[in-house]
Nucleic acid binder design. Structure first.
Lengths: 324, 324
DNA sequence: TCAAAAGTGTTATCCTTACACCCATGT
DNA sequence: ACATGGGTGTAAGGATAACACTTTTGA
């Protein structure tokens, strides 16, 4: 047990770099190599333990080198080891990917080197996650019918702690269960396991039903990058509520409505305006600059800035939302 | 950017396997090789991508092989890449450790193969984390004085987003800040960075102050295993509050007081009895078996069992605690 | 009969949610 | 004047925290 021989493996760092502009959350996608099939993919780089002491240092370095982007907030998401889901050539062999979430401001993102990389609205990859205008049509038109068919026996109630039907209820809010905007990864995984999305077919997981009639469920990505993005969105939606991370995505000064739109963009649902304002001001997360912005149309809005002091004041502030 | 050469690295899976008996939380420590200096260490094993499709499958397998233990709940914690903290021989080279949290019941833990492994109370490694009887004396006797000395200039306010003094306040509840039982990892990291614990000295990080007069701050562990244990405790303390994970540590039937003692053991602080009972019964997480237990001393207590159905009923139940 | 632990009832307080209304600007 | 978005007051409902009290056993 003490000294064991370990299999050599390669480690890649994959970054989900998020920014929000005009109320649209966007993800940095790496340049298309040209021939690779799913056009979109997340930027990734190797981890070289000789050059960098920690993952995070390495990540910051190659992100800056590749894109010129200086990311602020960085957080490790998850480490994915299942090889079955990489459909790369056999000689690339064993690859483990450590997923990271990074937040940046559009201001600094403007200075992006155009090495083929650019920001894309993230709901292109997850159209069923955007409930801001209305309940996404793709849910009732395609996803829920297909999954219902799939969850019927023989896949029905076997092989899992939770039956498939229960998972369908919990993940997609079927049959009275509420929609939980944080279950982004669970929903993606279920679609993958059911073989309903491009990546699953590519990995040799054919849907047992007439998928040909099925429209594409969101834009696919290379490797397991869409899974990492799902993890990033889920983590960000959850973290919003107990840590002041939104401000990493905001400019130095902003109106409360802009702040609300940013939160709504990330969480994918609309919030109750009055309560949001009260909440934000009540938590002392922001302070007025004294100036106003007339850019909005109606009455000029007061400008606010994030009170950096809160990071050292109270233990763990955030924006616990609450519907409508 | 498309095809990059990656450095080969070895990947080890390290498991923090937790059980609770008689109100003492315990961690499975691997057998002492005999000569290695810190006697205690977590069980770990290699990840062999040829043999196992996912990390979790591999982990379950070698845990069972090494200890005969059949762990139930398993969750990935964090992946540590900083080599600077492994003081192994140079030729072992680049090792990345993926930390896992696993929960098991003492019942099944009894069937443990005695391959040198055994359960140890986890507060032996973190004596400052147990506030159940009283505020731990080691805080005022050793930790806070030493850290205060350390946080004074020249280390004072430089080199960090948060000054050292702010971190001291937030992590250790100095100067009016409340003690947050979830900040287990933050506290450990701060002690490490200040060079006050064994592992730091071993990694070549000497304390700039008279550490000789300092008592050992908890029992050390091999490699970065104590850091992984800190991560595990922190995660478990947090997760208790929003997912019904305690029940993974309980026998099939239990009294509400036993349940409360288990929660207290993990979170390291005492709870308000009446409210705890009301809370638990109110959330419908448990149901009475109809029988009673006279084992406790006073009036016989009603026995309860976990209602497994809740996993599929409501979205995310847990035991939001609340002091005293 | 007394100690020890189980179990119940009630109240004060705060936070969340929701509704209704007023204010300042551009066209 | 009126449309548009900014901003405030207040009340109902539910969850939490705290208190005091009763019940059932073993020694």
């Amino acid at each position: 047990m003490a000294e064991t021989v370990l299999t050599p493996i390669e480690i890649g760092l994959t970054a989900a770099i998020v920014a929000v502009e005009d109320g649209e959350p966007a993800i940095l996608v790496a340049g298309d190599g040209g021939k690779s099939e799913p056009r979109a993919g997340l930027p990734f780089g190797p981890f070289d333990p000789l050059a960098h002491r920690t993952f995070e240092i390495g990540l910051r370095e190659w992100v800056e080198a590749q894109t010129g982007l200086n990311v602020g907030y960085v957080e490790q998401l998850y480490t994915f080891g299942d090889r079955g889901r990489h459909a790369g050539p056999a000689d690339v062999a064993h690859m483990v990917s450590v997923g990271y979430l990074a937040l940046t401001r559009m201001e600094s993102a403007a200075a992006l080197k155009t090495g083929g990389a650019g920001f894309e609205p993230w709901y292109r990859f997850f159209p069923w996650e955007d409930w801001r205008k209305k309940r996404p049509a793709i849910l009732d038109d395609a996803i829920i019918p297909s999954l219902s068919e799939w969850t019927a026996p023989p896949h029905g109630e076997i092989g899992r702690a939770l039956g498939w039907r229960e998972r369908l209820r919990l993940c997609f809010g079927v049959g009275g269960s509420p929609w939980d905007e944080e279950k982004v990864l669970d929903r993606y995984e279920m679609l993958y396991e059911a073989g309903l999305i491009e990546e699953a077919r590519r990995d040799g997981r054919a849907a047992a039903l007439a998928r040909d009639r099925l429209p594409a469920l969101g834009e696919p990505m290379r490797f397991d990058h869409r899974r990492i993005l799902a993890t990033a969105i889920a983590r960000l939606r959850a973290k919003l509520k107990y840590r002041p991370v939104v401000f990493e995505l905001m400019p130095a000064e902003f109106t409360l409505t802009e702040l609300q739109h940013t939160v709504e963009a990330i969480s994918g649902r609309l919030l109750h305006k009055q309560n949001f304002r009260r909440l934000v001001e009540g938590t002392a997360l922001v302070e007025p600059t004294g100036e106003t912005s007339t850019a909005t149309g109606g009455r000029p809005a007061a400008l606010f800035r994030f009170r950096r002091e809160v990071l050292s004041e109270r233990p763990a502030p955030g924006l616990r939302l609450g519907g409508r």
